[in-house]
Design a protein around this nucleic acid. Structure first.
Lengths: 204, 204
DNA sequence: ATTTGAATTAAACAAATGATTAAATCAATT
DNA sequence: AATTGATTTAATCATTTGTTTAATTCAAAT
């Protein structure tokens, strides 16, 4: 595999990840990364050649971090539909609690460069052939679930799990609750979201 | 009030709005705005003094556009809770269908400058004193609705209505459906979201 | 101790970018 | 037609920003 990265290489990546997640590519300046990592500016180009190449690495690792668990869970043949929902809610609320900007980062990237994302994400085909989707379409066939487009279900579940982390800053402003308190509140959703989704699946 | 804006002033604002919505402040270059508006670069500063002042105007108008209807609907004493949900779903899905990036634009801004947003949005106090919230807390008291924090409800409803427009690019990549098809599909949610929310309110 | 290559630094470069200037054109008024 | 102020233009300025260079320091091998 690749060589183990040096100390400074790691410092640069950590600083870059934080800043890219917060401010995006255009909003992050190489000098800000150097300052945050407490390294000489030239070392960025020494280790990563260019800002863009560094960004691509961070983006790749972020996508991998965000989707790697998903692929495992939705292809587990041992768990049923509801169990998968419960597991996913816990995993993703935990992940996003520790990394509140990663969803925004990835979604903004996909919005601006949808094409490149297609190639990067092999999980595309994964999802279409997943046990999860089979269980979903099966349930529709059996009449256990109403025939709404799977895209609706996807947007509902992702909306209930991911969206709170995207609106946290605004909800914080509107309610006056600090961001940390809201993230604490969001923990309740590990239990609630699967219940909500279940009840939604009764509709119509 | 203010003077009616000149022709070119409008051209600049329209181009700026589109680009700021798509690429944000740092990602939008003044030359890109000038080119998109088909005007001389200097006219941007002639009419708006600086890129930042132009951005502030666009941001202010976007926030106003996004929240002005909300304030009216949630303070309507003539409609009940469910009717408000139905009305809001229709209004916002229509608005976002015509302006798919406005939510992202505002949410990104709030995330990076939460403080300034507080002052800009007088709707803050509006929401706290709204008929809508009174009807919600009343329903909780009467036991019609389980005692979940209003912030959960806010995130649920916004998540079901707004989030689809935020993930549209990714869902498009994953499902292979064109963005326009997805926005067409999302129209169904004018009817579905209020039903879903209702069934969720039975939980626990 | 010397050598050698990697790592680090300060300085500078070149392009991009926001803003300004001074001259020109235009349009309305006298 | 002449005047006047607003509008538009081409050119330029000053700063920011990504990158490179050349010299220096460091650490390991001989």
């Amino acid at each position: 595999m690749s060589d183990k990265e040096s100390e400074t290489e790691g410092l640069i990546k950590e600083a870059a990840r934080k800043l890219f997640h917060e401010k995006g590519f255009a909003g992050t300046k190489t000098r800000d990364i150097a300052e945050a990592a407490q390294i000489n500016l030239a070392l960025l180009n020494y280790y990563f050649r260019s800002k863009k190449k560094l960004y691509d690495i961070i983006m790749m690792e972020s996508i991998q971090h965000f989707f790697s668990d998903l692929v495992v869970v939705i292809n587990n043949a041992e768990t049923n539909f509801l169990e998968k929902l419960q597991e996913l809610a816990i995993i993703y609320i935990d992940m996003l609690s520790q990394n509140p900007d990663i969803a925004n980062f990835i979604l903004n990237e996909v919005r601006q460069h949808p094409d490149q994302f297609t190639s990067k994400l092999g999980a595309l085909e994964m999802a279409k052939n997943s046990v999860f989707l089979k269980q979903y379409t099966e349930a529709v066939k059996e009449g256990v679930i109403p025939p709404v487009h799977p895209a609706h279900f996807l947007m509902n579940f992702a909306g209930l799990v991911v969206f709170p982390f995207i609106v946290t800053p605004m909800v914080s402003v509107v309610t006056g609750l600090p961001r940390t308190d809201l993230i604490e509140l969001i923990q309740e959703r590990k239990r609630l979201v699967p219940l909500w989704i279940q009840s939604m699946l009764q509709v119509k």
